[in-house]
């Protein structure tokens, strides 16, 4: 019973580390998906004296994916009642060309400024509007969210690693008699500690399995996926091959590394 309790303590601690890492990964993916969505909606407005083709605009920056001219007809139609046809024709001739430029990725505020500068170097381009202010706020909010999750995950990982270390010291204490008897018969350190490594590996596998099960249930019942879809984001929170393998690697890495640590640096009281 005591042994089961110790196993559960380590499994829960490892699961917590894995879950915090996976939550960070899922948030990162969600933000990436949201960036894609923002990118699709986001465009830079260019006002120019001459007509540009998409290819001409694309040659100015590798970030430009496509462009589309903004029709001035609607604006001119609104002025029909207020101006004479002659003035309207004159205005149509002198009115600059408007373009909506779409980018191939969601730009950082710095990238928007650089793009604006780059486009404005062309003498025929009069004005570039990047809507940097609105864009900057959303972007910074997203980064803040990502950073908070990252710090939170790191803090959880650090605290639970300490708990795992304590738990393993307890294991070492429980197996101390067996290990000391083995030492009296000349067993090398790795053989004496084999039981600790075996327990650490088994618990790492169990913790990974529980994580996979938890994310399978989240995926199966779809409560998070539904919420994300509601805001237009379609994302895979857990990849059952890549994520499972990475989680197993992390769990094994942490448990084996901490076991090594207590084997190589035993407690002074031991």
């Amino acid at each position: 019973m005591k042994s089961l309790k110790n196993h559960i303590s380590l499994i829960i601690a490892l699961f917590t580390v894995l879950a915090s890492v996976q939550i960070y990964v899922a948030v990162d993916r969600t933000i990436a998906a949201y960036e894609t969505r923002l990118k699709d909606d986001y465009s830079v407005i260019v006002v120019a004296n001459k007509a540009f083709t998409t290819e001409e605009l694309k040659s100015m920056s590798s970030m430009i994916e496509r462009s589309e001219p903004i029709s001035t007809t609607q604006v001119l139609d609104r002025l029909k009642g207020e101006m004479s046809q002659k003035n309207l024709d004159l205005l149509r001739l002198t009115l600059p060309k408007f373009y909506r430029i779409y980018l191939n990725r969601y730009p950082s505020p710095k990238e928007i400024n650089n793009l604006q500068r780059l486009l404005q170097r062309n003498p025929t381009i009069e004005r570039v509007e990047g809507f940097a202010q609105t864009h900057d706020t959303i972007y910074k909010l997203m980064l803040l969210f990502k950073n908070v999750v990252q710090v939170f995950s790191l803090a959880i990982a650090a605290v639970t690693s300490l708990l795992i270390l304590k738990e393993m010291r307890l294991w070492q204490f429980q197996h101390a008699e067996r290990m000391s008897i083995m030492a009296l018969f000349g067993a090398p350190v790795w053989l004496r500690s084999a039981v600790l490594f075996r327990l650490a590996i088994v618990d790492a596998i169990i913790a990974t399995f529980i994580l996979c099960l938890a994310f399978f249930l989240i995926d199966y019942y779809g409560f998070l996926i539904t919420q994300l879809k509601a805001i237009g984001i379609s994302v895979q929170l857990f990849n059952f091959v890549d994520d499972a393998l990475r989680s197993l690697g992390i769990a094994l890495g942490i448990s084996v590394a901490l076991t090594f640590m207590i084997v190589i640096f035993p407690n002074e009281e031991d």
């Binding site: 009296l184 018969f185 000349g186 067993a187």
Partner: peptide, 10 residues
Amino acid sequence: LNFLRRHIGI
């Protein structure tokens, strides 16, 4: 020491 102990019975 481990090598020696592997040749001793206690």
